[in-house]
């Protein structure tokens, strides 16, 4: 049942004692087995939402369920299903890798399982470091330890709060591969990240949160299709003083130096549009020596959303399913 909800958040709000409203009437559903990327600027409410679901922060009014169980009333059963990789590298520096991973497994009520933990540490390239004190590990290795701890009790849901922050490119790629592997094993993954490429590369669905409100939840591919913009850039052999009146097409702009024509169009529009534009240009004697096309990235979409340009439009379309 791939569409079955594993997490459902209904009308959740959170106001901190300082009076800061971190979450404002959040409604969100996470599907079982998906990779869900939660994007948002600093202070948007990403970590608060994750912290409430994991039991680190007391929830405000609203309903939170994980696998049909209430996060507060059934906290034991809920927390057994969840693993958390926190944003900060919070580990006991004097402990060994093996001891700290065993501690976490025990905290979740699981009996020691050396075979599983060895497999886990090997998969994270930590096995040869198992007897090392955490203080001797590099930043990237410490982050791997956090992931090992989060997976030590074999959770069904894994929260990754900025998992690759400060991690080198190679390690980031390794982590992405590992996350995909977890998804293949049926683990639901909720990812917050500043690296839009991370979400773009891995997520099945994307949610955008801003100022404590869910601005958008959408299938990533659908989102790119709906909000992505394409650009066609034509380099002209000679500068054009102005576009002829007959070539005035919506979205077609001549650069200030007259050397480039840029045509911006929506990915939802008919691809035949480009042909029409090129034919029209030829018909009026405007030739080009080169052309380039590009598509807006998820980052462009994200920036556009949080800056409010498309937020209202999208909110009504995407909602928070």
């Amino acid at each position: 049942m791939p569409d079955e909800a594993i997490i459902s958040v209904s009308n959740l709000s959170k106001v901190y004692p300082s009076g800061f409203q971190a979450l404002d009437n959040i409604n969100l559903t996470i599907k079982r087995g998906e990779i869900f990327a939660l994007l948002g600027p600093n202070g948007a409410g990403k970590t608060t939402l994750i912290s409430i679901l994991c039991g680190l922060v007391n929830p405000g009014p609203g309903e939170l369920k994980v696998d049909g169980l209430d996060v507060v009333k059934d906290y034991r059963a809920v927390r057994r299903k969840i693993g958390l990789v926190p944003q900060e590298i919070s580990i006991s520096m004097f402990e060994t890798v093996w001891a700290t991973v065993n501690l976490t497994r025990g905290l979740y009520g699981k009996k020691p399982d050396n075979v599983y933990l060895e497999k886990l540490l090997r998969s994270l390239s930590l096995w040869d470091k198992k007897d090392n004190k955490l203080m001797t590990l590099s930043g990237g290795m410490k982050r791997r330890v956090l992931i090992a701890k989060a997976l030590s009790h074999q959770p069904q849901v894994l929260f990754l709060d900025e998992p690759t922050a400060g991690v080198d490119v190679e390690l980031r790629r390794d982590m992405w591969q590992m996350i995909r592997g977890l998804k293949n094993d049926g683990v639901t993954i909720i990812l917050t990240t500043h690296y839009i490429e991370e979400a773009e590369d891995m997520a099945d669905r994307v949610g955008v949160i801003n100022k404590g409100r869910i601005v958008l939840v959408e299938e990533k591919a659908e989102l790119m299709k709906k909000l992505g913009r394409r650009e066609l850039v034509l380099e002209l052999p000679a500068p054009l003083p102005a576009l002829p009146a007959a070539v005035q097409i919506d979205g077609l702009v001549l650069s200030a130096d007259g050397k480039k024509l840029t045509y911006t169009y929506d990915t939802r529009s008919d691809y035949g549009e480009i042909g029409r534009v090129i034919r029209t240009l030829y018909d009026h004697g405007i030739e080009f020596r080169d052309l380039q096309t590009s598509q807006s990235t998820l980052e462009d979409i994200f920036v556009s959303l949080v800056s409010g340009n498309d937020a209202n439009a999208v909110e009504s379309k995407g909602g928070a399913q």
Partner: peptide, 15 residues
């Protein structure tokens, strides 16, 4: 110490 180092998170998040 868990409060100071931040590792209290895993106690609070545990069942």
């Amino acid at each position: 110490m868990p409060r100071f180092t931040g590792t209290i998170y895993e106690i609070l998040a545990a069942p």
